[in-house]
């Protein structure tokens, strides 16, 4: 489903290579995790895939269901089914959470040639999804992410994911800033979305998130490359021995 081949990326401002040839394929129905030390390029990969400015792709390709992602605007990628749960969800004063979500959903549907969702249908859909994430009416009414706690922001990201129903979900350090209870809520939300038509790429520094969201495949990323790939046991190895051992082993 998501196919990344030989992807090389520079930081535009600094002329510095961050990704040095990433190869990765996420199949539908599977959860892939990417782990790696700080500065390994994990988050850059998520930004490049979602179309954030400031990065220059110098080689390789990234496709979703065969469509060239790198040639699309961010909104087109979203309509094609890509979703990035941000490490730092952005606060946007003045834009209501619900207004935003409905605008996004209908924009995606319009782009795909589908009918827009009515207010009543939308309200029903959001309420249902919000309930399982323990997002109350007040959070839905407030401006987007404004004054939300870390946990609320992450739950709000998962709510967006649940409402937009993307084909391919990328979670960038979703566990950062979460306490145990919030981690459980967020993970339950993600697990509820797991199905055979949907792929996940879970980016995390720590193994603990993977206790809750069990990956099918674990990749270790270092210095802009995937250096090792294995099963869930690889995450446990990181937890036990840290990155140094694995990195010295592949070096």
């Amino acid at each position: 489903m998501l196919d990344i081949k030989g992807l090389t990326v520079d930081l535009e401002e600094e002329d510095k290579q961050i990704l040095k040839g990433v190869d990765l394929s996420v199949e539908a129905g599977k959860v892939h995790a990417i782990m790696g030390p700080n500065g390994s390029g994990k988050s850059t990969l998520s930004y490049v895939l979602s179309g954030r400015e400031g990065y220059e792709v110098t080689g390789g390709s990234a496709t979703l269901d065969g469509q060239d992602l790198l040639d699309m605007d961010p909104e087109e990628r979203a309509a094609a089914g890509l979703f990035l749960a941000f490490q730092y969800p952005v606060e946007i004063p003045g834009v209501g959470n619900m207004t935003f979500l409905r605008t996004a959903l209908n924009a995606q549907r319009k782009a795909r040639g589908e009918e827009e969702v009515s207010s009543a249908e939308f309200l029903k859909l959001v309420r249902e999804k919000a309930k399982t994430l323990k997002i109350d009416a007040d959070m839905l009414k407030r401006p987007l992410n404004v004054g939300f706690s870390g946990g609320e922001k992450k739950r709000n990201e998962i709510l967006q994911m649940a409402v937009l129903e993307p084909r391919m979900c990328i979670l960038d350090e979703t566990d950062s800033g979460l306490d145990v209870d919030a981690m459980k809520l967020v993970s339950d939300g993600v697990n509820a979305l797991r199905d055979e038509g949907r792929g996940f790429l879970v980016i995390t520094h720590y193994q603990r998130l993977l206790d809750h969201i069990t990956p099918d495949v674990v990749h270790i990323m270092a210095d802009g490359r995937i250096v090792k790939t294995g099963g869930p046991e690889l995450a446990l190895e990181v937890e036990k021995n840290g990155y140094t051992d694995i990195l010295s082993e592949v070096a």
């Binding site: 605007d73 909104e75 979203a78 969800p89 834009v95 935003f100 605008t103 924009a107 995606q108």
Partner: peptide
């Protein structure tokens, strides 16, 4: 903020 909105499918 603009990127955040676009990443959810809202045209620029």
């Amino acid at each position: 903020a603009l990127f955040y909105l676009r990443s959810r499918g809202v045209p620029e």
